[in-house]
């Protein structure tokens, strides 16, 4: 009885684990050639979904994303190179659809600001530590009075 229960639980888990795969692949026709389909999927991951905006069309289940996935498949089946397909989509929707936008005058700030921030942060931190090390005053040697006081205190402690 116990084994049967355990087995059925396992089977249920296995089914649940399969669900996303079935959902993603069961609904739309894929290219018969797995190599081409693989290329299409890599391209899907580079293209941004226009409806949900921060998902790629590979991840999105918006209807437009599905249409665009099929457009990519068709272009590939027609013999387009990856770059041809990207150009085709960009001609219609602009650079906005690229999850990794190209480096040009308009995107210079976008591309340069993260490294610039990183360098600024490093330089700032380095300067801070260098300066704080320099600003620690050299310890002055104790005067004879202070030494006498120290000896007294230590002596008291030893006796006590």
């Amino acid at each position: 009885m116990r084994t049967a229960l355990r087995l059925s639980m396992l089977a249920l888990l296995a089914l649940l684990a399969l669900a996303p795969v079935v959902y993603a692949q069961g609904l739309e026709p894929v290219l018969p050639d797995p190599a081409l389909e693989q290329r299409a999927r890599e391209l899907h991951k580079r293209l941004r979904c226009l409806v949900c905006q921060n998902q790629s069309i590979h991840e999105s289940n918006a209807e437009l994303a599905r249409d665009l996935r099929n457009v990519v498949r068709e272009r590939i089946a027609a013999g387009d190179t990856d770059e041809d397909v990207v150009t085709y989509v960009v001609a219609r929707y602009g650079n906005w659809v690229l999850l990794q936008p190209p480096l040009n005058a308009g995107t210079l700030v976008l591309w340069l600001s993260p490294p610039l921030l990183l360098v600024t942060a490093f330089v700032g931190t380095a300067l801070y530590f260098l300066r704080s090390r320099r600003s620690i005053p050299e310890a002055k040697p104790l005067s004879s009075e202070e030494q006498a006081r120290v000896a007294e205190l230590l002596g008291e402690e030893r006796r006590g």
Partner: peptide, 13 residues
Amino acid sequence: ELGRVGIDWGVYG
């Protein structure tokens, strides 16, 4: 019906 002309026009919404 298939939305293909729409895609050529860059329609997304």
